[in-house]
Nucleic acid binder design. Structure first.
Lengths: 219, 219
DNA sequence: GAACTCTATCAACACTGTGTCGAGTCCGTC
DNA sequence: GACGGACTCGACACAGTGTTGATAGAGTTC
């Protein structure tokens, strides 16, 4: 009886737990504090107490608004993801009509821009993904979206004869999308072997174009 | 004088802190326990107590052998890195003489094999890299090694006219190496959009060859 | 305007995990 | 047989998480 008695389920149900009222300010204050602190240091070095203090409340009161630190960050990531989804929809439109190569570049540019604009959140997402299943799932969804789109583009280009055949389109898409993720992350995080922020796009675009349009290699 | 009196430096100086004696067994037991537990669950869900228990000692005794949990994992990663360095040296030899394209495939194969053989450690390394500077540096060194080698190959192939010009060789090398890392990680971790373990190599090799040897794309 | 309810708040607590200290035991050697 | 170093662990101090229960205040509702 003892063990099952506790309905422990931290990080379930992202937002406030009760109904809605005036304390919206507090909730916003917590989110803003989190974003601001993430600008300064990694997620692992931010405690619930830091968030509470930043929002001008006590630690227990924090738990009135969010079930955990992770939930706060997840909420923030949700927004980033929503913004990125917007970029993706837009990019798709550009791609559908007109020159696919130029469209591809536009798409990669938008995506890169969306994440660079919220660098700190992007890095926190990567960190959270390591330990939090919800973050992992959310990110997986995002990746899946891009992979699906990219697969469609590759298949279309192959079908119309603009791109040569090769490994399955979806497999290539997965590798390219993951390359972008990693390269962008390394660049944002200032890792040691990493591309300069303003070189990222040129390099990624060249590899994408060659991977999709370039024939094998007749030495 | 006081401050310097304590040679306290958690996670600094990987192995035992004292001299060497019989307790080598314990040290080995801790390392083996760690490897074994990493096979079952992520690093974040393994405590110092788990390691101590697994090695048949108490928690304080653990600290006689290692300054922290991280230090244990770092030691394990060191070994993986050493093995990978071996693969790299071998791959270089293959590359230097004979067909570079076949050599490239061999190199990627060896690398992939080295990490797949120690999947759990590879995943732990990625996890630790998020929070531990030492792990970050160690990994950075490894990456730098591959980037340097790859850069040399690309430049050589361009010089001898086998590969067309393009973005700076080092930039391309960074992107490709990071792609490999991310694709392999996703595959090992069983992420949702990820390549099947036995598709990884074919896909990576195709993209490498096209990125290096494939011309742009004259639609 | 007293009783009722619902939001919001926090002190105090229980728990988990880390790292340290000090008091040992055991063992070889001088 | 006592000294010193390798080795061990109980007990502690600390940091962080999440919960409980008591309470204050701001509207209703009758």
């Amino acid at each position: 009886m003892e063990a099952a008695a506790k309905p422990r389920q931290a990080a379930k149900g992202r937002g406030r737990r009760g109904t809605r009222a005036s304390g919206d300010d507090r909730e916003r204050a917590i989110l803003e504090t989190a974003e601001q602190l993430l600008e300064e240091r990694p997620l692992s070095e931010i405690s619930v107490d830091d968030l509470a203090k930043g929002a001008g409340i006590s630690r227990p009161t924090f738990y009135f608004y969010f079930p955990s630190k992770d939930a706060v960050v997840l909420t923030i990531i949700d927004r980033l993801v929503a913004a990125a989804a917007g970029s993706r929809a837009e990019a798709l439109t550009t791609l559908a009509q007109g020159d696919p190569q130029a469209g591809l570049r536009r798409a990669l540019e938008d995506l890169y821009g969306a994440f660079r604009a919220r660098r700190a959140v992007t890095l926190a997402a990567a960190e959270l993904r390591m330990t939090n299943p919800e973050a992992r799932d959310l990110w997986a969804e995002v990746m899946e979206g891009w992979v699906t789109d990219t697969t469609a583009v590759i298949e279309a280009e192959r079908a119309r004869g603009a791109a040569p055949p090769g490994e399955p389109a979806r497999d290539v898409a997965i590798a390219l999308v993951q390359m972008n993720e990693r390269v962008q992350y390394a660049s944002f995080a200032g890792e040691s072997p990493a591309l300069d922020q303003d070189r990222v796009l040129d390099v990624l675009v060249e590899i994408w174009l060659r991977a999709i349009y370039g024939a094998g290699a007749p030495s």
